[in-house]
Design a protein around this nucleic acid. Structure first.
Lengths: 202, 202
DNA sequence: GAAGCTACATACTGCCCGGTATGTCAGAGC
DNA sequence: GCTCTGACATACCGGGCAGTATGTAGCTTC
């Protein structure tokens, strides 16, 4: 059997990132307790400050290395699809199905961080803005691609529609937190799906 | 000239609520410092704890007496209108015009509190949910009223559309915080206005 | 006009938390 | 096998903050 190696810096770092993400997701960044992260990860304070210079640096790393890939993975299918409308609807359905329980309790990690940190810390704001910019640009490109192929109506502004779609998703998830049930989230997402389908060229 | 009265409990309480709202709006509830509220209001800690039993009680009072009326006032024109679509578009335009600068920096007080406090404190969650429920019910009623009068399409579910509209507004404001400029907010609001107008019966 | 309650004011306390100082031990490199 | 650096571990510190204990002055009531 494998004797557990005593030194595994990469693994320690990843464990820390994962536990920090969980704690930040549940409590928000400022209320996230380093002690709680240390306890859940089984790592000591010395190790944490060896890998990350400060709580803020840990937060930045969580954004760059956990939140960003997570967001990018979720809308990637839309970018890759020929029929972006069908793909977007599918993504919405999939997200609703797999994540509405957790989302209606704790919201979206990305949205939570924007709401909490953007007006308070420039480092967070820039990182989060970059993620949003990329997401926005991706949806715009998908819509324009769809317009060029005759899938998407050409009488709508792709930029406005993309901003509207992204905002709707995050808005639904955000507001659902104030409810006990997933009903509001799922209702809003049905409204979003209707809207997305209304963008299809007749 | 008026000699300033030394005892003005109502005025003191209102001052406290206003300054607490400002501080909570800018910093979030948990990061809001009582000392900062005391300094900006010129009230002492003894006075604060005379009027409010705890920081939490102060926060609840801010929700009940500042946030709730503020939200209600903003969508009231839609409820009162004969043409709810025109009224909703007008409200969106007005909000964008008057508040996008502040909103793109600090967001929406209501949305901020939901995001921060709903998963952390039941007292906040219940109060905020009630505000959202009333808002949602109001928009549903306006849409159904519009459907009955032939203003609004009857092939859409009023409940889903209402949730979607509210979520979009809060989503736009929320995401705009990660941007320096008002562009994203205004772009998303144009998308929302297009959507609302698409609900009109042809 | 004395009593008593309301509306404050001041000083202090105790906790939690981020951060640091210092120590130690494993393993790579020679 | 000795050294040196990276990868941890432990103990402690200082600040900020919510909350409290206690004091006092105005205002009403009779």
């Amino acid at each position: 059997m494998n004797a557990p190696a005593k030194r595994q810096p990469d693994r320690t770092r990843q464990t820390l990132l994962g536990c920090a993400f969980d704690e930040i997701y549940r409590s928000g960044f400022r209320a996230a307790s380093l002690d709680a992260i240390l306890e859940s990860s089984g790592v000591t304070k010395g190790a944490l400050y060896h890998h990350f210079g400060s709580k803020t640096a840990l937060g930045y790393a969580v954004v760059d290395e956990v939140v960003r890939p997570w967001i990018e993975a979720s809308w990637k299918p839309v970018l890759d699809a020929d029929d972006c409308i069908a793909a977007a609807v599918a993504v919405c359905r999939e997200l609703t199905r797999t994540r509405s329980a957790q989302a209606s309790e704790y919201g979206c990690p990305f949205n939570n961080l924007i709401n909490e940190m953007s007006s308070v810390d420039e480092g967070f704001r820039c990182r989060l803005q970059q993620i949003l910019d990329d997401w926005h640009a991706g949806v715009i490109a998908a819509l324009r691609h769809g317009q060029a192929r005759g899938v998407v109506r050409t009488d709508i502004a792709a930029e406005d529609a993309a901003a509207f779609i992204i905002a709707s998703i995050e808005g639904c998830v955000g507001l659902a937190k104030s409810k006990r049930s997933r009903a509001f989230l799922e209702s809003g997402m049905r409204g979003l799906i209707d809207y997305i389908e209304s963008l299809r060229r007749r």
